[in-house]
Simulated assay, not measured.
Amino acid sequence: MANIGGFFKNVMSEMRKVSWPKRKELTKYTVVVLSTVIVMAIFFAIVDLGISGLFRWYLEL
């Protein structure tokens, strides 16, 4: 049980050393992540539609 208490004590000590992002930085990072996800989703949707169209065209021959 002493090892568990020591572990959490060390975790708390290390968490105090962490440099947490400010609100403005966090907002900027969130916008970057969300916009990247949206762009990638649109890209893969277009690629999927293109490949599906090619398969449908090929199967109609």
Score class of each variant (00 low, 15 high):
residue 11 V to E: 02
residue 17 K to C: 01
residue 33 V to M: 12
residue 40 M to C: 11
residue 61 L to T: 09
residue 34 L to Q: 07
residue 40 M to N: 07
residue 43 F to N: 00
residue 7 F to L: 05
residue 14 E to P: 00
residue 50 G to A: 07
residue 55 F to N: 13
residue 45 A to H: 05
residue 7 F to W: 07
residue 27 T to A: 07
residue 52 S to R: 14
residue 55 F to Q: 13
residue 23 R to L: 10
residue 16 R to H: 02
residue 13 S to F: 07
residue 49 L to R: 15
residue 24 K to D: 02
residue 50 G to K: 09
residue 56 R to C: 01
residue 30 T to V: 11
residue 22 K to P: 02
residue 37 V to I: 12
residue 35 S to W: 15
residue 30 T to R: 15
residue 21 P to D: 03
residue 30 T to S: 07
residue 10 N to H: 13
residue 29 Y to R: 15
residue 12 M to N: 14
residue 16 R to M: 04
residue 23 R to A: 10
residue 4 I to P: 01
residue 50 G to T: 03
residue 42 I to S: 12
residue 29 Y to F: 14
residue 52 S to P: 03
residue 38 I to A: 06
residue 21 P to M: 04
residue 56 R to Q: 08
residue 3 N to G: 10
residue 20 W to V: 01
residue 2 A to D: 09
residue 42 I to L: 14
residue 18 V to T: 09
residue 57 W to N: 13
residue 15 M to N: 02
residue 35 S to K: 15
residue 20 W to C: 02
residue 3 N to V: 06
residue 28 K to H: 05
residue 43 F to E: 04
residue 41 A to N: 05
residue 23 R to K: 15
residue 29 Y to P: 00
residue 8 F to M: 09
residue 54 L to W: 12
residue 60 E to R: 14
residue 9 K to N: 10
residue 36 T to M: 13
residue 48 D to V: 00
residue 57 W to Q: 13
residue 56 R to F: 03
residue 10 N to M: 12
residue 40 M to Y: 06
residue 8 F to N: 11
residue 45 A to I: 00
residue 8 F to C: 03
residue 38 I to V: 08
residue 7 F to Y: 09
residue 15 M to R: 05
residue 37 V to Y: 05
residue 40 M to W: 06
residue 39 V to K: 04
residue 49 L to W: 12
residue 44 F to K: 07
residue 48 D to E: 08
residue 47 V to I: 09
residue 18 V to R: 11
residue 51 I to Y: 02
residue 38 I to W: 04
residue 31 V to F: 13
residue 36 T to K: 15
residue 40 M to A: 12
residue 26 L to M: 11
residue 42 I to N: 09
residue 9 K to P: 01
residue 9 K to W: 08
residue 12 M to E: 13
residue 46 I to D: 01
residue 34 L to M: 11
residue 23 R to E: 08
residue 29 Y to A: 15
residue 60 E to T: 09
residue 2 A to V: 09
residue 24 K to Q: 09
residue 25 E to G: 13
residue 37 V to N: 03
residue 4 I to L: 11
residue 21 P to T: 03
residue 41 A to R: 00
residue 38 I to K: 05
residue 57 W to G: 05
residue 42 I to M: 14
residue 16 R to W: 04
residue 48 D to K: 11
residue 45 A to T: 04
residue 52 S to D: 08
residue 58 Y to D: 04
residue 16 R to T: 02
residue 44 F to Y: 13
residue 36 T to W: 12
residue 53 G to T: 07
residue 1 M to C: 10
residue 21 P to H: 05
residue 10 N to S: 15
residue 60 E to S: 14
residue 41 A to G: 06
residue 33 V to D: 04
residue 52 S to I: 06
